[in-house]
Design a protein around this nucleic acid. Structure first.
Lengths: 111, 111
DNA sequence: CAGTATCCGTTCGGATACTG
DNA sequence: CAGTATCCGAACGGATACTG
């Protein structure tokens, strides 16, 4: 046990991480962005069950947290691309493992 | 593109994973369980900001999903231990990386 | 000790309609 | 195309009291 709370061994570091990437759709969104920049509509099609509103909100939060970069092209019709920032790219390893784990877990539960 | 949706490349595998471990506290709980079996009260102290009710609920969900094992000892006063199942242990690698990432992310955001 | 039960306010998330 | 606006129910979260 340490005296200083801020120095506690692993004091809710996982908690802190989940505040950033713990949103219901965030990991899935980020996973698709590992394939390179994606437009809003592409993400919408990739995640059929997310609503437009939720996609917008989760993307805005990820942007505010420095994970995702939003690039607006001055065109008509509008074109907006979302991509991973350097910080976002540092999650790629975790995302891949999560994806593998998810596939494996499904098999385990369906014997 | 494949014809069969159920065979789609990575169709929401990450989504499926997050349905299981995406709860607000689940990753943090699991992270503490990597240190070995923990009693209810130990987990409560480890996660000071979770309420008793929420801890109970998240543990029950993890148990139902086969991630956590709940062992009740027939004693007075009661003793209940929570531990990772084999499936739960398969998350240890991800949990460690998530913890490392969380610590690193904090530094990045506080320059 | 390890919960359950109840109440209640806040936040999250979904459905639908509309717009520059 | 890439969003907003509005409404609403579900889930989250806190406080408090009670129990085997």
């Amino acid at each position: 046990m340490r005296e200083n709370v801020s120095e506690m061994p692993e004091y809710c570091t996982v908690e802190a991480a989940m505040e950033v990437v713990g949103g219901k759709w965030k990991m899935a969104i980020l996973n698709y962005l590992t394939g390179g920049p994606q437009r809003f509509g592409e993400l919408k099609r990739a995640l059929p069950s997310i609503t437009q509103r939720m996609l917008t909100r989760q993307l805005r939060e990820l942007e505010a947290d420095g994970i995702v970069l939003r690039t607006v092209y001055a065109q008509v019709p509008p074109k907006v691309e979302y991509s991973l920032t350097t910080i976002g790219k540092s999650l790629e390893d975790i995302l891949q493992r999560l994806e593998e784990w998810g596939a494996w877990y499904r098999e385990q539960r369906r014997p």
